[in-house]
Design a protein around this nucleic acid. Structure first.
Lengths: 153, 153
DNA sequence: AGTTTAGCCTATCGGTTTAATAGGGTTATG
DNA sequence: CATAACCCTATTAAACCGATAGGCTAAACT
């Protein structure tokens, strides 16, 4: 299960994507609208900024905004920043490989082979989905909901 | 990342599968051979037993053994017992659904739609892999290693 | 220049989870 | 009936999570 921190980050990014090209957004506004503890959100936005996902401006009229287009921000990238590697065991991670201490022979470990499949499946989806894709799916689902509502009323 | 507890469980199951139909195995032997803290292993084997994966016999000549054939033990089942739901967010879990507190409209949440894909991909692999499959992949990898070794010697 | 605004940074805290240990209790078998 | 071996509850230390506190720094407007 992913942490609240990561969920907050994703919600913040979606919020900022919706306001893309409309100038900086205040932490306070974002926190209020998405019901995220302000001080906690500060830390999250800061790490996103330090990793090139976001940019910021200080002082009056400042705030946070996307550092690049929603099409260039992959969910895999964001989740790795906040949650760590996608792999279920360190010995199959592509971005943060580490030997499993308790493993005797990594090359013939059956668990590892299975977990590699799992990691690849997760990475394929998360690295292949951009912030723009998430927005689009949301918009499509909203359209569909409206259609269903109309039908029943 | 999965916990040590789950890794220990998987190693223990593989060990017991190798000794399938050869009578009960002592916790102490398993702990020694797989380098798992004995008391910790006791708890793990107990929960596996309480969930029908293992069986045990008490008293002299006792020990643990598989409750069913390796072909009937799915990795998904085992991992869920020790690690909890496979889903990355509770709102897409099939076995332990729960509403995400912070979610305003679940039906149109783009994150949820993406996470559902992730869950399905993970579940497809883990529920589709049995203990017997893991043993077989290990055996195959060992054969290949031997072949490579032979070639180089 | 000075003041306000708003992000930047470090430290801390209570609560929960993880990994491991302790210490007996219970049950079946020889 | 003694003993081997599993069964069960409680406790611990360390790590992590979610959240908060409090000041620092930089930018902008007057």
């Amino acid at each position: 299960m992913i942490s609240k921190k990561t969920k907050y980050a994703l919600k913040a990014l979606i919020y900022l994507a919706r306001e893309f090209d409309k100038g900086p957004i205040l932490i306070a506004d974002l926190a209020r609208d998405e019901r995220i503890p302000k001080k906690f959100l500060e830390l999250i936005l800061l790490t996103l900024k330090n990793n090139g996902i976001l940019q910021s401006r200080k002082g009056k009229g400042g705030g946070y905004y996307l550092g690049k287009s929603p099409k260039e921000i992959s969910m895999g990238n964001v989740i790795r920043l906040l949650e760590g590697p996608l792999a279920p065991v360190p010995c199959v991670s592509e971005t943060a490989y580490a030997k499993c201490e308790e493993c005797l022979d990594e090359r013939t470990c059956g668990i590892r082979l299975m977990m590699k499949d799992v990691r690849d499946a997760i990475a394929k989806i998360l690295d292949g989905t951009t912030l723009a894709d998430v927005l689009e799916r949301t918009a499509r689902a909203e359209q569909q909901e409206k259609g269903v509502l109309h039908y029943y009323i």
